[in-house]
Simulated scan of single mutants.
Amino acid sequence: MDASPQDLTIYVDADACPVKAEVYKVAERHRVKVFVVANSFLMIPPSPLIERVVVGGGFDAADDWIAARARRGAVVITADIPLAHRCVTAGADVIGPTGKPFTEASIGMALATRDLMEDLRAMGQVSGGPKPFSGKDRSAFLSALDLAVVRLKRAGFGATFP
């Protein structure tokens, strides 16, 4: 089931998402439809608001599915910078799992930093990945998602279920 253009909808790039439980909590509170998109089967809570989407195993299949539906009124949850760029360009609100929003003003720098770090890792100059996910990150994410949903509701985007 796809959302109509005026529905407020949340799309989760779920394969490595550490904040799915927080998304479900906000969705239930605001009665917003959530699509949990992954390359493999993931458990989701039993709720008419939460729908699992298992895409083919192709490279970027989940990203392509989400990007095709990204629009104004959608909130996309992802740590994937190229996907965030595609969704911001399409007009969606995009939030990383640490609560950091990706915006038109910030996405260019995020892409440049990602590319630089990728090059440095390839040259052996940098090893390791991002810092461990913390309770502070989880709290910041909850606040950012709630704020995005409230702002979109005020802008006239409706919750899926009354």
Rank of each mutant, 00 (worst) to 15 (best):
G91D: 09
V36D: 04
W65Y: 14
V75L: 07
D119Q: 14
E118S: 14
V54F: 09
M123S: 13
P82I: 03
S47K: 09
R52P: 02
V36H: 01
L49C: 10
E22G: 04
I107L: 02
A110K: 11
G96M: 14
I81N: 01
D80W: 06
R121E: 09
S106K: 06
D64S: 12
P101W: 01
L116Q: 11
C17M: 03
A68E: 14
R31Q: 15
H30E: 13
M117H: 04
V26K: 01
P45A: 10
E22A: 14
L120F: 09
E104N: 11
G91P: 10
D13S: 08
I95F: 01
F133E: 09
G57C: 01
A92R: 06
S127V: 13
E22F: 00
S139N: 12
I77A: 00
K131Q: 15
P45K: 10
T103N: 08
K33W: 07
A140G: 10
K131T: 13
W65N: 05
K25G: 00
I44M: 02
R121P: 02
P48V: 11
I44S: 04
P45N: 04
S127N: 13
A74K: 01
A92P: 09
F133S: 01
E22T: 15
I66R: 03
A38Q: 08
P101Q: 11
D115S: 12
G91M: 06
R121S: 05
I50D: 02
L120W: 06
T113Q: 12
A84C: 08
P45C: 01
Y24I: 04
T98D: 15
K33R: 15
L42E: 06
A112H: 11
M123W: 03
P18R: 08
V36Y: 06
V19K: 02
V36Q: 04
I50Q: 02
F102G: 00
F141H: 05
P82S: 04
V75P: 03
V26F: 02
G56W: 00
A62I: 09
R121W: 08
V55Y: 05
M43E: 14
A79T: 01
D60I: 00
I95R: 00
I95L: 11
P101V: 06
V36M: 10
F59M: 11
A105R: 13
V88P: 03
G108K: 12
T113C: 00
